[in-house]
Nucleic acid binder design. Structure first.
Length: 886
RNA sequence: GGGCUCAUAGCUCAGUUGGUUAGAGCGUUGCGUUGACAUCGCAAAGGCCAGAGGUUCAAGUCCUCUUGGGCCCACCA
């Protein structure tokens, strides 16, 4: 047997084998089963461009723990997997690929390009799925969904139509976030605000009348701006009506420099008197505030930018210049004209494209929007009523705050890859805007019968399909009825707005039911310095490398045990050693048991008739501890306290089961009770640890006597409450304290644990002590490696005995014949003397005024610390000496 | 401007509704190996729980403020 089981656990040998086994036996699949309650988790669909990173590893391990746990608890457990078509991200990747071949998507044309993306998706789109399997994810792969599946796409179109018919989708010209690199509109959420170091430019705008009337030096008004290039599109200057400085010039005209446009000075209370000069240039086509001002005061909207962020036709002499080049040039030109007052450094936050990190432009364009206010209402209600709960709870506030201030959602994207907007336009219709919203392309215009019909060129925001994920993934009605609402959503904080909030709105709007009951928000994975782990920063640890080196179980266990609820996770490679070491510990404890287990002796039926009274204290103790721990583990999992659950199992298995229990029964391992209990506790522990470490637990479980096909479909251990015995737990804890005390005494006396036999006498403090010691004497003897243990009636400190006091008990070791007392005492006394001499000299040093006054502080501090250490040492030695009676 | 979060052992962090002696991993020190495991065992050292005030019989935990990190949101021209 020993030869069969290697001393070290080798994950690579076992993981692939068991994963295939689970898949081949269909153990991941869930079906409608009205005998059982359902438990459903939807994977946050990774992008098809995605490659497994530590964030995924954490996210999916958490989900797998929940699913495996609930599966073992007898719930019909479905983990629905799938991928997201990730419009912009995927289009960017494929564009890069064809760029290597020397052409652009426009060269291919829309249809050919889309074909190309599909081919790319077939080849690379499931990379992350294969990687999730390496992690051990027990998803029902037969249900693998993709947001561009035909059925899924139908749902997207259906939803668009329903919202349109309800008047919740509209088209209009507004300022949106425009990414000049991706050439598309973005939603507010997709334009992530980041601090940038910018400048505040103070520009002089000449006043027309002043010039004429005085004929003197040009009189001007100074405006401050962070984006001087937009001045080309200015159509007013605004001041606060209460601002005394500008009271007299409201309504007057300015000649806009460089383009010589005549614009008015208007008054509006929105202007902050304290900011800049209190006068603000108004560019209605390039700023959301200015847009509002423009509407209110009926100003002109002049778009001076092209979609690629070069200056447009309307930028006059600057036409064609890139926006930042134009900025430089304009500042230069204004300076030359004496119209640049000053430039101040100014930090501001600007939107960045969440896909390519380019600074986005506020840009006036015609887009499709979803009216969010009406959708938010019931989504707010269900969270306020506690029907959906966030873990940790603090995210509730974040969610509600966003929902209560919700803005309309720009859903059209000027890219090709995605769900094309189901809107058609009649080319010859004279009435209205010619918009036809339809599930399929209409043959003829319903109004004028023209067949000159073309579809809207834009596609929908990727999140417009993702928000349907909780129900659109169920392609069969009975599945939807059974598995929806789902149970728990496990996700990261950064997508609460993108996804979680919108799913709740969609669930309420289209199913009239919440999409999930619990939302568990885990932390962000960071490196040792606290920076977010990301490919672009180059600080990421590749989970696949970790799996290769340490094993998937080690990765899973490590990452879980260091992830406190909702806190960020700080990772470094060494942290995976903890998981690897634990896996190895489990492996070797099992190896020991397998070597010593006589299979025939493990009578399964025997335990049914076991009364706990029949068992030895240590067997009662380990069973009680196991069930106590298990009940805590369950409580933790109910509350999504994964790390606590993992650490409880870790501590129990390693320190209680291995370090104490197995060590105790080693000497009597053939005893049938010990055989049975060590087997039982191991087997149950494996089941309890399986959700956390699926591979190694399966590997060992299969080697043990077992019933059933696989540990993953075995039952979660049932807590036998009558076996939990707090008395025995307390009693054994005290026994272990006595053992530790004796071990300490041996160490102090330099008596190695292995070599000499010692005889220990204990004088109990009271009756309870006596009972405790008497009934556990054999354990104490074997654990402390004591030859004999006598429980005495009366404490007498005899000659040549070393005494230690623990909770009123006197533990003594007679030293005659074991060590040479005189020699030992002399050694100790010498040490004490030596220490005292050192103390004396240190004290003298510290009492020396010259030293104190002249020596550097650090040195004095160090000397003080040395003195303290010496005092400690001497105290210990005296204790040792006083415990001895020579 | 609003909000959230963190500060506990040398390092990285746990510590649920207040309740005996504040824990773990790593690191350090000492001892230990032919008997499951050195990816190990037995021990040890190491904490004014950021600072100040308050509530309480009782505060690492609750309240207020201060200091110093991190994050999110907002129409900071």
């Amino acid at each position: 047997m020993i030869d069969e089981i290697p001393k070290q656990y080798s994950p690579s040998d076992t993981e692939e084998r068991w994963y295939s086994f689970w898949e081949e036996n269909n153990l991941f699949s869930a079906k409608v089963n009205h005998e059982k309650k359902p438990f459903t988790i939807l994977i946050p669909p990774p992008n098809i461009t995605g490659i497994l990173h530590m964030g995924h590893a954490l996210n999916n391990t958490l989900q797998d723990i929940l699913v495996r746990y609930s599966r073992m608890r007898g719930l019909e457990s479905l983990w629905m997997p799938g991928t997201d078509h990730a419009g912009i991200a995927t289009q960017n990747v494929v564009e890069k690929a064809i760029a290597k071949e020397g052409f652009k998507r426009q060269d291919l044309g829309r249809d050919k390009f889309i074909e190309r993306v599909w081919r790319w998706q077939e080849e690379y789109g499931s990379t992350i799925i294969r990687q999730l399997k390496k992690l051990g994810a027990s998803c029902d792969w037969q249900r693998l969904r993709f947001t561009m599946d035909e059925e899924y796409s139908k749902a997207v179109v259906e939803v668009f139509l329903r919202l349109y018919e309800k008047g919740l989708i509209y088209r209009g010209t507004y300022i949106i976030n425009w990414c000049p690199r991706c050439h598309t509109a973005l939603s507010d959420e997709e334009a992530a605000h980041r601090e940038i170091k910018g400048s505040l430019y103070y520009l002089r705008y000449p006043l027309e009348q002043a010039n004429r009337q005085t004929g003197k030096q040009a009189n001007y008004i100074v405006v401050a701006t962070t984006r001087p290039e937009t001045m080309l599109g200015d159509t007013a200057v605004a001041v606060n009506p209460k601002d005394k400085r500008y009271k007299n010039i409201i309504g007057k005209t300015i000649t806009l420099p460089l383009v010589n446009r005549r614009i008015k000075i208007i008054a509006d209370s929105i202007v902050d008197i304290k900011f800049g000069t209190g006068a603000v240039k108004v560019t209605p086509a390039h700023d959301p505030n200015d847009y509002a001002l423009g509407k209110k005061h009926r100003l002109d909207f002049i778009n001076v930018l092209n979609p690629d962020a070069t200056m447009s036709e309307l930028a006059g002499p600057y036409k064609g210049l890139e926006r930042f080049k134009a900025r430089e040039k304009i500042v230069e030109d204004l300076k030359a004209l004496g119209l640049l007052e000053k430039i101040e450094p100014h930090d501001l936050s600007a939107g960045h494209c969440y896909r390519c990190h380019t600074i986005v432009e506020p840009y006036l364009s015609k887009q499709w929007f979803v009216k969010m206010g009406p959708l938010a209402k019931s989504a707010i209600k269900v969270v306020k009523e506690g029907k959906i709960k966030f873990y940790p709870n603090r995210w509730t506030k974040v969610y509600l705050n966003w929902m209560e201030n919700i803005q309309d959602w720009c859903i059209s994207r000027q890219i090709w890859w995605g769900h094309r907007i189901p809107v058609y336009y009649c080319g010859s219709c004279k009435e209205g805007d010619g918009v036809i919203v339809s599930r399929i392309k209409p043959e003829k215009c319903p109004k004028c019968n023209s067949s000159d019909i073309h579809q809207d060129e834009d596609v929908l925001d990727t999140w417009f399909s993702s928000w349907l994920w909780p129900f659109a993934t169920f392609y069969r009605k009975d599945d939807l009825a059974y598995f929806y609402p789902t149970s728990t959503l496990v996700t990261a904080p950064e997508i609460i707005f993108f996804w979680v909030a919108r799913m709740i709105m969609a669930g309420m709007e289209f199913q009239n039911k919440i999409p999930f009951k619990d939302v568990y928000i885990h932390g962000t994975v960071r490196d040792a310095e606290g920076k977010k782990m990301s490919k672009s920063l180059g600080n990421s640890i590749d989970p696949l490398e970790v799996i290769k080196e340490y094993g998937a179980d080690a990765l899973r266990f490590s990452i879980i045990s260091i992830t406190a609820q909702g806190q960020d996770v700080f990772l470094s490679k060494e942290k995976f050693e903890q998981g690897r070491n634990f896996a190895n510990k489990v492996w070797n404890a099992s190896r020991f048991i397998l070597i010593n287990l006589v299979f025939e002796k493990v009578n399964f039926d025997l335990c049914v008739f076991f009364k706990k009274e029949a068992l030895s204290p240590v067997n009662r103790w380990i069973l009680s501890r196991f069930f106590s721990i298990l009940s805590e583990v369950e409580k933790c999992l109910e509350k999504y306290r994964f790390n606590e659950a993992a650490n409880l199992l870790y501590g129990f298995f390693w320190h209680e089961f291995c370090d104490w229990y197995l060590e105790i029964i080693k000497s009597d391992i053939q005893n049938p009770h010990n055989q049975l209990i060590m087997y039982k506790v191991l087997e149950k522990s494996l089941r309890a640890m399986h959700p956390f470490m699926p591979f190694i637990t399966e590997e060992i479980w299969q080697k043990l006597p077992h019933e059933g096909l696989s540990i993953m479909v075995s039952k979660w251990p049932h807590i036998q409450k009558q076996i939990i015995d707090k008395e025995i737990e307390k009693e054994m804890a005290e026994v272990f304290e006595v053992v530790s005390a004796i071990r300490n005494m041996r160490l102090a006396l330099d008596i190695p644990l292995a070599s000499l036999d010692i005889q220990v006498k204990i004088y109990p403090a009271n009756k309870n002590n006596r009972l405790l010691l008497e009934s556990n004497a054999s354990y104490i003897k074997s654990l402390a490696k004591v030859k004999s243990l006598a429980i005495e009636d009366k404490f007498l400190h005899l000659k040549n005995e070393y005494v230690n006091v623990l909770k009123g008990m006197h533990i003594t070791i007679p030293l005659t014949g074991i060590i040479d007392i005189d020699k030992y005492l002399k050694k100790i006394n010498d040490k004490i003397l030596g220490a005292e001499i050192d103390i004396k000299s240190k004290k003298a040093m510290l009492n020396n005024k010259n030293f104190i006054q002249r020596a550097p502080k650090e040195i004095i501090e160090a000397e003080k610390n040395k003195l303290e250490a010496l005092n400690e040492e001497a105290k210990k030695l005296r204790g040792l000496r006083d415990g001895l009676k020579a």
